[in-house]
Amino acid sequence: MKHTISVLVENHSGVLSRISGLFSRRGFNIESLAVGPTHDPAVSRITIVADGDEHTVEQIEKQLNKLIEVIKVKTFGRDEYLARELMIVKVSATANKRSEIMTIADVTGAKVMDITLTTMTLELCDTYAHLCRFEEVIEPYGIIEMVRTGTIAIEKGAETFNAKK
């Protein structure tokens, strides 16, 4: 089962390697990992999507908490959070396919970033599941290149998750 885990860490060099190293050496499977600054320059926030049963997730949380530079860890419950991921995809698109691809983009919410005589580059920011559906639909046109950021997530409503107590 997939779990979305938010980790607040000190913004030190080497923190990311400690975290990714922890996952590999303890045999935890990472689906995606996204890291970036927060509004507090001393704190970075990492969102990890990991695969595992309850016991594994409990261990992931505890082992993450043992790292000195990890400030807080939270595993989101189902429907507790809002999640987004950005995808950029370059598809082969000759003149006769362009309008079809434009239609798919319209329906799915993707935007055209770039266009050439033979390709179109689209961006889509949405949930992991929606991105997967989009990929499925665009795939028959010929995906030349694709990048995804991995999921970032924040809790729904007025609840906050920050470095202060």
Binding site: H55, E58, Q59, K62, Q63, N65, K66
Partner: peptide, 8 residues
């Protein structure tokens, strides 16, 4: 003293 050892 190490919470990670409990239940590991």
């Amino acid at each position: 003293i190490d919470p990670a050892e409990i239940g590991k």
